[in-house]
Structure formats: C-alpha cells, structure tokens
Design a protein around this nucleic acid. Structure first.
Lengths: 149, 149
DNA sequence: ATTATTCCTATCGATTCAGTAGACAATCCA
DNA sequence: TGGATTGTCTACTGAATCGATAGGAATAAT
C-alpha cells in the first residue's frame, strides 16, 4: 500500500538511465538529475546491479547503464529487485495466508489486489515512462478525473 | 505495497462482526475467533470506534457491533480508518508528487495504480467477504490461476 | 602517479510496528 | 449497594525497518 523512498529513487534512476540511451551516467550525475541523496543512491545502484537491472564500470568514463533494452525492463522488475515480491500482507504472500471463519474470503481479495497491481506494473516498461507514452489501459485509468483525488 | 498486521486484524474483526449480525461481540471473543493478540485487538477496536466503523457498549452484555449495515462498509473504509489514505509514495499522495526530467510520467503510473486498487477496495464490502460472495470483477481476477503465484 | 569512479561494510538516528501493562469508567445483575 | 464484566485510555517497550551517511578499498583511464 505504500511505496518506499528506495523504490521511488530506484525507478527514477533507471528511467533517467533509459533516457541516456546506453551512455553511462555516474552516480553523482544521476543524483543531481533526480535530486536523490548521493550516498543513498549509490547503495540503490549497487542493489540494482546485483539484481541484474544495470551494469557498471569504475574509473573515469565509468558509470551505470541499463543491462537490457529499456523496453524489456518493467517497473515490477525494478520493484522486485529493490523491495522483494509485490503486495503482501504482514510480509506473507497472499497464497500462503490461512484465514479462518468468516474471514476466509479475504484471501481472494488479496490475490485479486495483487493481480490488479501486476496488470499495471508488469506491463509498463522503463521505456514507456522515459518516453512519456504509457500503454492505453493505463492512460484510460489516468484519464478519469476522479482518479486524481 | 504492503498491508500492515493492524489492517489485516481490523478487517478480520469487522468481518467477524458482520457474521454476528448485530449481536455485540466482546473483544475477547473476537480475539479468540480470529487468533488476534487480545490487547492489540483492543487498540484496533478503539480506533475503529473513533473512526465510526463500529459502536460499543461496556459492561456485561456489552461488546462491539458494526455502526452501519455490513453492505455499506467497504474494505477501503476500514483501511482508511486504520492506515490513512491508500497507495502513497514515501508518505505523499500521488497527485502531490513533483517529478522532474525523464521521470515525469511516473506520477501517472502511481495515479493509475491507486485507481486500480480503489476499484477493488471501494467496491468490496464487509458483507461480501462475510458471505464469501465477492463481486464478479473480483471473481474474474481470482479465477486466473496465474494470479495465485 | 593521479584522478575519477564504483564497490563494500559498517553504522546511525528516527520512525514505525507489533504487542503489553495497568489504571479507570461504565454497565448490568444480584 | 456491591461485585463482576466489559470497554476506555495512556503509556510504554523491544525489535525491525527506513532513510541516510562515513570512509576506505578496488579498478580503470590518462
């Protein structure tokens, strides 16, 4: 229900890398471009590299770039690397929850909720965000003025 | 992205109250029925009362009951009373986020995400869960086997 | 060498989370 | 009237998480 600062920063960094089109960007440049605390971003980039989302090189002319084409990296890919699995209740995945009595059907609600989050986050790619051209189903949701309050 | 134990317990308690059909239940009985730490549940019920979700009475024959018909209480109602507004990023609501540069379109993604969560949580009522009969759109999501992994 | 950069471990303070303790107030019943 | 039952309220605690920082080691280019 709540997105961490870490995930937010990670996505902004990755999108910025997509906009750089393969040219490496240093951690410092990324931090300035997206107003992210530099040392905090550094630890996030490390995590992204270990998760296979970005590559890196040290030294002058070094920096970070996307490990795959931006069209092949979804927002969910990034979120899972940073925060682990989507939509869980008390740290447990919905399919493992054991509800009793009148609350039985709650599990199905959580499964549905996760499915609807996936429908968005598995579909939107880093390239979509960088270009500003989101998939039609997302546009439809955003077009409703009621969604903005 | 993560639901707190508090919200989970609150929903289970409220659903249990719905199943009791107006007869008051004591905090202790609720705690046993749903396996919730008694004193923790107590503080949750207090919050639900202040939020207008349940009513209460002290003394023998006392207890808690729903303040409105179960058909008129949505899961989102309960969640908002316990945890505050839905789907925020770093504690800020999506419409107030100021993204810069390549990340501009991220805001729209968060708005869409919140809208799709609302589509579920504003529609499912406590009565739906207690009866086990969820609205058709939710059933459709749950019917997909892929949603369960 | 020097400089620029990533890599890595450790740590910190604040906040949130999950849960507990214990006194107090209302209600009912005998 | 008195006792049992139940909710009300404030305060507290220990653990985990969150957001962020420090500082040095390793690597690459000039």
């Amino acid at each position: 229900m709540r997105l961490s600062a870490r995930v937010d920063y990670a996505l902004r960094a990755v999108v910025e890398l997509a906009a750089s089109e393969g040219r490496p960007l240093t951690s410092d440049k990324l931090a300035r471009a997206q107003q992210i605390p530099p040392k905090f971003l550094e630890s996030i980039l490390l995590q992204l590299r270990r998760g296979g989302v970005v590559n890196s090189q040290r030294g002058p002319e070094g920096g970070y770039w996307l490990a795959r084409p931006a069209e092949q990296i979804t927002l969910a890919d990034v979120i899972r690397v940073i925060d682990g699995p989507l939509a869980n209740v008390r740290g447990e995945r919905p399919e493992r929850l054991g509800y009793q009595g009148a609350a039985r059907a709650l599990q199905q609600v959580w499964v549905a909720l996760r499915a609807s989050e996936r429908a968005i986050l598995d579909q939107v790619t880093v390239a979509d965000v960088a270009s500003g051209e989101l998939p039609d189903p997302i546009r439809a949701l955003v077009a409703d003025p009621a969604a903005w309050f």
